[in-house]
Design a protein around this nucleic acid. Structure first.
Length: 580
RNA sequence: CGGGAUGUAGCGCAGCUUGGUAGCGCACUUCGCUUGGGACGAAGGGGUCGCACGUUCGAAUCGUGUCAUCCCGACCA
């Protein structure tokens, strides 16, 4: 490719609306152009990168025995009603109507479609197991698109679906995909960590997320991990707590004055006790229904866990207005900071559900709100002074410093970008959609399913997050848009031009994807662009050619070397052959 | 959805308070000069100032509405 003809426009400055590195770099270097919020044009450079990521995925999925197909982007409402997700999916599902008023949606994922295809074709146990995948644009109407390709509304995804006859067979395929994913991300030049993750409203299912570890804002997930190998998303973390004082010194239960102690901190100061002796009561609204969460005073609530504990789909903390109203409805004159579970019965037409975190179960002689302003109950105990709620489960947000549930050492925390996930679905879709086959005994059985996703465009962006410096992108060779650039310092120097063209042609002949920067620009401009775009290798043909030497530089190394053109070419050809 | 901000040329911005010819830098075209880390000079091309309505002799500027975009909090590849 001649640089003078390449469809690319680099910019001198970063775009003002980009926040994270990958977004800034990809726009400035001419890979991306935004069309509308969360929707991007993939310009030629970007598309080359995406195709490379796709091809790595294809090779590894095929090697793992999966078969590629392509399903429609637009899907009919009917199938989504069969699975029950037309109502359950929420605002992210982009719904639309055709000219006849039939309701459709843009595919955010394809469980319904693949299940509908499978049930028509996979009739016998002899055809199973099967794993089918596709690579395609998806659309999710995100509440808040941001971070460029890391959280777009339209994005490219590889989604795979497996159909098995038993849990064992599913687990085998799950492991198979785990290994394929490990290879895929490694080939893309990414270090990933597989972490346990929340499986949403589907209880009991197993799922893992593949995280690119990056301690920047671009990592939207907190990952807890331990040297022993335990690793988990914060929304799924279970941890052991270090020893703490959980028994108060009061000899009897009583109500004491605690003026102006709306926060745990103020209450601790006033009573001169550690927060571990307090049962904190938080008010949430889950799908419009009121939920009280009881948790130890020093610990935050993990809202996803709480939501799952009551089987909800949407959760938010209640407003002060709602809390005031809830107090009034139940006959109390109180406010935030003094709430307790005792005596709260209903709100908003629903009974109040109370969920206690496991941490509060063992507290003795503790402090708790009694729904009266400026007082608290102290020396309280479960059963005698206040009832332990029906639901006692883990709703706690793990924090750094807590202990690994498997080996007991302190957990570490870091941030990660989720680039893939694997999921044991079981019969979640096959049962309601009546997707069945006949087993050896001629009996009807639902498929045992799994699904496996990779964010293709997100993976490319994650690679930029992981590999860049202040001057631009440092693509891993396997997914770089081009392997190398050849720069003649002066296009008017005939010898330089001739040598540069010779090297260019030699590299092309050996299968290297190479760009010849034949623009009549000053050398500085070409170097800046080369660094910004991120070509892994650069050969500069300058004055040194009088001695038969060119400058060779790898983007990820500081130093350049002066060597013979044929030697430079050989290094590149060798490196390129290695990644093939 | 709640809270905060911004819409002026492809990109980055000024002008708005105090209404009166639409500007600057980069990018783009031509010429000259220059050629190892985003040179310089000259001459050019490109904008219904997000949109609508209103106030006014006159609106980028004032008012109302509307749309879009971005940032901070709850979901996901």
């Amino acid at each position: 490719m001649k640089m003078s003809k390449m469809f690319v426009q680099t910019m001198r400055e970063f775009p003002s609306d980009a926040e994270v590195v990958s977004h800034k770099m990809l726009v400035r270097a001419g890979y991306l152009k935004k069309l509308t919020s969360g929707v991007y044009n993939y310009l030629p450079l970007m598309w080359r990168v995406l195709k490379k990521v796709e091809n790595i995925i294809r090779e590894e999925m095929d090697r793992a025995g999966a078969q590629e197909l392509l399903m429609p982007f637009v899907q009919p409402k009917e199938l989504w009603e069969e699975s029950g997700r037309w109502n359950a999916y929420g605002g992210e599902l982009m719904r639309l109507k055709d000219r006849h008023g039939r309701e459709m949606c843009l595919g955010p994922t394809h469980e319904e479609i693949i299940t509908a295809i499978a049930r028509d074709i996979l009739k016998s146990y002899k055809q199973l197991p099967v794993n089918l995948y596709q690579i395609q644009s998806k659309f999710r109407d995100e509440r808040r698109p941001r971070f460029g390709l890391l959280r777009g509304r339209e994005f490219i995804m590889k989604d795979a679906y497996s159909f098995s006859t038993s849990q064992e067979e599913l687990e085998k395929e799950y492991k198979n995909m785990w290994e394929a994913y490990t290879r895929i991300f490694k080939r893309c030049g990414l270090e990933t960590k597989a972490v346990q993750s929340d499986s949403g409203a589907i209880g009991g299912s197993v799922s893992h997320e593949f995280m690119v570890i990056t301690d920047t804002d671009a990592g939207e997930n907190d990952v807890f991990y331990c040297d022993c190998g335990y690793a988990t998303n914060s929304n799924h973390a279970v941890s052991k707590l270090p020893e703490a004082k959980i028994e108060g010194d009061w000899s009897e239960a009583k109500i004491v004055d605690t003026p102006n102690t709306k926060s745990i901190e103020e209450l601790c100061d006033f009573l001169n006790i550690p927060p571990t002796l307090i049962v904190k009561t938080l008010v949430y609204i889950v799908d419009k229904k009121p939920v009280l969460a009881l948790i130890r005073g020093d610990k935050p609530v993990e809202e996803t866990k709480l939501m799952n504990a009551v089987g909800g789909l949407d959760i938010r903390i209640a407003t002060e207005g709602e809390i005031d109203e809830m107090m009034a409805v139940n006959g109390f004159d109180s406010e935030r900071g003094f709430i307790g579970p005792k005596g709260l019965k209903e709100y908003n037409g629903y009974p109040i559900t109370v969920v206690a975190d496991e941490t509060v179960k063992d507290l003795k002689n503790f402090v708790i709100g009694v729904n009266k302003k400026d007082v608290h109950g102290v020396g309280y105990n479960w059963g005698t002074d206040v009832d332990l709620p029906q639901i006692v489960t883990d709703i706690r947000l793990a924090q750094a410093g807590e202990l690994c549930p498997e080996c007991g050492k302190p957990l570490k925390v870091t941030r990660g970008i989720e680039v893939g996930n694997i999921f044991q679905l079981g019969t979640k879709y096959s049962k309601p959609m009546n997707a069945v086959y006949l087993d050896q005994n001629g009996k009807t059985q639902p498929y045992i399913m799994g699904c496996y996703g990779i964010g293709v465009s997100r993976t490319a962006a994650a690679a930029v997050e992981a590999h860049h410096d202040e001057f631009g992108i440092k693509w891993p060779l396997a997914i770089a848009p081009y392997h190398a650039v050849v720069i003649p310092v002066s296009t008017k120097d005939e010898l330089q031009m001739k040598v540069a063209e010779d090297i260019y042609k030699t590299l092309l002949k050996h299968g290297v994807e190479v760009v010849l920067d034949d623009r009549d620009e000053r050398a500085g401009v070409k170097f800046k662009d080369a660094d910004l775009i991120g070509f892994p290798y650069r050969i500069t043909v300058g004055k040194g050619i009088a001695d038969g030497l060119v400058e060779f530089k790898a983007r990820n190394e500081e130093q350049s070397i002066n060597i013979k053109p044929e030697d430079a070419a050989e290094i590149i050809v060798t490196a390129v052959n290695e990644i093939k």
